[in-house]
Simulated scan of single mutants.
Amino acid sequence: MSNICQIPANNKTINNTLDEFHYFITADGTSDFKAEPGRYHLYASLACPWAHRTLIFRKLKKLEDMISLSIVDPVMDENGWMFSDGPHCIPDTVNHFKYLREVYMKAKNDFKGRVTVPVLWDKQKQTIVNNESSEIIRMFNAEFNTCTDATIDFYPEHLRNEIDQINHIIFTSVNSGVYKAGFAEKQDDYNVAFDALFKTLDFIEERLSKKRYLVGNIITEADWRLFTTLIRFDAVYYIHFKCSLYRMIN
């Protein structure tokens, strides 16, 4: 059993081309998934940094009354993520399943891939809209603006090129880098991931020594994508993933 968002380096956390579901919600409904209050449901885990991103955006964009929520148990059994009555868990009030795998199977009955969080579910079409956190937060950021008064934009157009560049660096060496190091099966692979991780953290430290935010003078999605890894670093990655050159607290 596991209580860490354990994702080996050969799956979706490292290579998101393995994701199955990449539909998009749009404000005007041209994608067949229209942004509507009460239509969508988010499945997440408090243990997972990727799911944590979506919870942050759901909160900051004031979508809590519009997008319902289930939280899986942080401890996985042999069947993967499950719904329980454990602390801070929220059961599946939409499909009433015991395991998240059942949600995937309902969306695609021949599903053979890896069951991961987050998952954005369409109650109307009875299917998964998307299971890629970086795409879900973009939808939360922009497509529900007519449904809420939360006008803050975490992906402003004039900063998008720079945000994308920083996101790529952080995703490759930090967000995924801790998993590349933690699940490395060869010493050389571990060394490469370890070195890239801490070189990038040094780069970030230098950048933030001169400015408050990673991009521009406002908080953007780049900051939040970094935050969900850093907040877990000392408690999880430093100890369990052997990313132990230094701790964030230092």
Rank of each mutant, 00 (worst) to 15 (best):
I4M: 10
C5V: 03
K12Q: 14
N15K: 06
L18H: 11
L18F: 12
D19F: 13
D19E: 09
F21R: 03
H22A: 11
F24Q: 12
A27G: 05
D32T: 15
K34I: 13
A35V: 11
A35C: 09
E36D: 04
Y40A: 13
L42A: 12
L42G: 13
Y43V: 07
A44L: 11
S45G: 15
L46Y: 11
P49R: 01
P49W: 00
P49Y: 02
W50E: 04
H52G: 08
H52I: 03
T54L: 04
L55F: 03
K61Y: 08
K61C: 12
M66P: 00
M66Q: 13
I67R: 07
I67H: 07
I71M: 11
P74A: 06
D77V: 12
E78Q: 10
G80R: 07
W81K: 09
F83V: 11
C89G: 06
P91Q: 11
D92V: 09
N95A: 06
Y99C: 09
L100F: 04
R101M: 06
R101H: 08
E102M: 05
M105C: 11
D110V: 07
K112D: 14
K112Y: 01
R114H: 12
T116G: 03
P118K: 09
V119W: 05
V119G: 02
D122H: 09
T127Q: 14
T127P: 07
I128M: 06
S133N: 12
I136N: 06
I137P: 06
R138V: 13
F140K: 05
F140I: 01
D149R: 04
T151M: 14
Y155K: 11
E157I: 10
R160M: 10
R160Y: 01
Q165C: 10
V174I: 15
G177H: 08
G182D: 04
G182N: 05
F183R: 02
F183S: 13
K186E: 14
Q187F: 03
Y190D: 05
L197N: 02
F198K: 00
F198H: 02
L201D: 08
L201I: 13
D202L: 07
F203K: 13
F203T: 10
E205Q: 14
R207T: 15
L208A: 12
Y213A: 08
Y213H: 14
V215K: 04
G216T: 08
N217C: 10
N217K: 14
T220H: 12
L226S: 08
T228R: 00
T228N: 04
T228I: 00
T228W: 00
L230K: 03
R232Q: 14
R232C: 02
R232I: 02
V236F: 03
Y237M: 04
Y238K: 04
K242G: 00
S244P: 00
L245Y: 06
M248A: 12
